[in-house]
Simulated assay, not measured.
Amino acid sequence: MSELVTGEAVALELRPARLPSRALAVLLDLAVAVLAYLLVSIVLVFTTASWDEAARTAVSVATFVLVLVGAPIAVETLSHGRSLGKLAFGLRVVRDDGGPIRFRHALVRGVIGVIEILVTFGVVACIASLVSARGRRLGDVFAGTLVVRERVPAARVGFVPPPPPWLAGRFSGLDLSAVPDGLWLAVRQYLARMQQLDPQVGWAMAERLATDLAARTGTPVPPGVPPAAYLAGVLQERQAREVRRVYGSGPAVGATRHSGGGPTVGGSPHSNHSAHSGHAARSGGADHSGRSGYSGRGEVPSASGDRPATGFVPPA
């Protein structure tokens, strides 16, 4: 399975294609391209019979480039990485981050593919695919792409509880640029499965992940914040930033509504932060002796009717 991770810290269920399936897909594409080239060449022989030798040579070279190089590039661009051969074998070309390819990706793959596949009869492409951990040929390496299998059963993604409202705005100033994708994925997997863990084991895992995350951000975990709640708050902050980066400055996913104001992006009306912190401190529902910072039932009754239950217990 691939290690592609999206901005929401979700591992993409993409399986890199193996060399046999890729080779069969390329052979099918080449067979179709060569057949089209032969048909076009036969038509040109009759239509350019009265032309001089130089004109016929120029037309032949242009036909070769357009049919065997330009056509595959256009097909991959318009189909977002699915040529006829790849469609037949359930393959697709995607970017390194799992997104659909564009013209520049298909152009680099096509130009380098002329040397890898046509000139060397696929020898260079086979060697590069065997050496690469994810089966990429040189065209994929330079284009930043990956050929994956599309026909893979979809896996169910566990529910990740949102952070508690009393953490609103606490992590809006963190520098998350140094946090690797592997750590984001580990945090998300822990939050999705912490209800299934033994309380002592879950608390220890949360502390270790929180320590690693705080070291990467350069800011220690706020005092009195359970590690599981800290992880959920920072993860939601990252998701909110990703949404703002993609869709602009509109409302972000995961916004929470506070009793004193409107919806907040990543939980950030700073004017209500102290009020909610004081309310959390007076709620008396803290359980620092609890070993996971998370209720065993998966949710905690809301102290006020307009705040959703998150499953996290506020600190004392």
Score class of each variant (00 low, 15 high):
7 G>W: 11
7 G>F: 13
11 A>E: 09
16 P>C: 04
20 P>W: 12
25 A>C: 13
26 V>G: 04
27 L>G: 13
29 D>P: 02
30 L>F: 04
30 L>N: 06
31 A>D: 03
53 E>P: 01
57 T>S: 10
65 V>S: 11
73 I>M: 14
76 E>W: 01
79 S>K: 05
80 H>G: 00
100 P>G: 03
100 P>K: 06
101 I>A: 05
102 R>P: 08
111 V>W: 06
112 I>W: 09
116 E>V: 07
117 I>N: 03
121 F>V: 15
123 V>T: 14
123 V>R: 03
129 S>F: 06
134 R>N: 09
147 V>S: 15
149 R>I: 03
156 R>W: 12
156 R>H: 10
157 V>F: 04
160 V>M: 13
172 S>I: 07
174 L>C: 09
184 W>D: 09
187 V>I: 15
200 Q>K: 05
201 V>M: 08
202 G>V: 02
205 M>Y: 09
208 R>E: 05
209 L>Y: 02
210 A>M: 00
212 D>S: 14
213 L>E: 02
218 G>W: 11
226 P>C: 01
226 P>S: 05
239 Q>K: 10
246 V>E: 01
246 V>M: 02
249 S>V: 04
253 V>K: 10
253 V>S: 12
259 S>F: 02
262 G>S: 10
266 G>W: 06
271 S>R: 14
273 H>C: 04
274 S>Y: 11
275 A>T: 11
281 A>G: 07
281 A>E: 08
286 A>H: 07
291 R>N: 07
293 G>Y: 06
303 A>Q: 07
305 G>A: 08
309 A>N: 08
309 A>C: 05
310 T>D: 14
310 T>H: 14
310 T>M: 11
312 F>H: 12
315 P>I: 00
